[in-house]
Design a protein around this nucleic acid. Structure first.
Lengths: 160, 160
DNA sequence: GCGAGTGAGTTTCGATATGCAACCGACTCG
DNA sequence: CGAGTCGGTTGCATATCGAAACTCACTCGC
């Protein structure tokens, strides 16, 4: 029977990603930073996260180049945490999670709407196929081993 | 200074979503199910998750209608876990996380490639603005309170 | 029918992570 | 000077996790 033949971390970038940001707090912290909540105390107040955990998570994010600690005033020396490009690149993931929550838990009344600055309309996140240019339904997605996986027997995988 | 004025759970579907699937294992389990790894033992072998935790996560996902437990044979009664529509709708989030990991940790050699079944080319996930039809850069995204948030003073929020 | 084997959990228990509160150090303001 | 604020760190009780053992239902070979 076509069972999985190798540990998952070899196959999948999802694993690596979740090892880094897949705990209960990190994505919430990043969401705050995206929203402009960038300072230690603000994030703490907003999330209710324990201060020691917040300190740990922030420094881990800084270590991994997802956030950077920037001094924004000198009188009392104060820093804030800003997204790097690497951090900003997580935006699609956050948006996807938000849309899912909106759709399944907020009905037609999303608590927050994302807006395209230049045209003012609400945003959508879609999977587009660069080959045919069409929007892709999850059922039409198949996965196969890519070049980063040394070629051994990974069974055909279904998707959905 | 425009600070946050209310607890985050009121504002954001990301919070609700992460409360449900934002722990270290759940998204990995879902990824397995997406890939066709649907049975208790398979998932356990693949992820190395403790059996008690796997049992707990699976039943929570079933309780919340993300997976369903389906009997697939009767001789020895055996069940497998299948995605519901609600579960399949998480696909964009998983894809976004995977792309991020590919981009930042796999260089140009992603371990797994997603393929559009009908045309065979690798997939992309982009944020498209339904208003102007253009691909949206994260810098151009702003958020504002939506209809699901009873209107009180939520400050202007920046994004990135 | 009997013993071994398998899949899917559940229980137990020590290791780890979390949450809370108190403390600290730099700085500012009255 | 003394109180207040910001951004943490430390200590400790508790909650959660992980590994292994155990249970239970069922099947198979004999």
């Amino acid at each position: 029977m076509g069972t999985v033949s190798r540990p998952a971390e070899d196959i999948c970038s999802i694993q690596r990603t979740l090892d880094l940001i897949g705990d209960r707090w990190t994505l919430l912290i990043l969401r705050d930073v995206f929203r402009g909540v960038r300072r230690f105390g603000q994030i703490h107040d907003d999330l209710g996260i324990a201060r020691n955990l917040l300190a740990g998570r922030l420094s881990r994010l800084v270590d991994h180049g997802i956030l950077e600690r920037v001094q924004y005033q000198a009188r009392p020396v104060r820093h804030e945490y800003r997204l790097t490009q690497k951090g900003r690149d997580l935006s699609p993931a956050l948006i996807a999670l938000m849309h899912w929550g909106d759709h399944w838990y907020a009905g037609d009344e999303p608590p927050t709407v994302l807006v395209h600055e230049s045209c003012g309309s609400a945003l959508d996140l879609v999977t587009t196929c660069p080959g045919c240019g069409e929007v892709v339904d999850p059922h039409q997605i198949r996965s196969r081993p890519g070049p980063g996986l040394r070629a051994t027997s990974v069974p055909r995988q279904e998707h959905a």
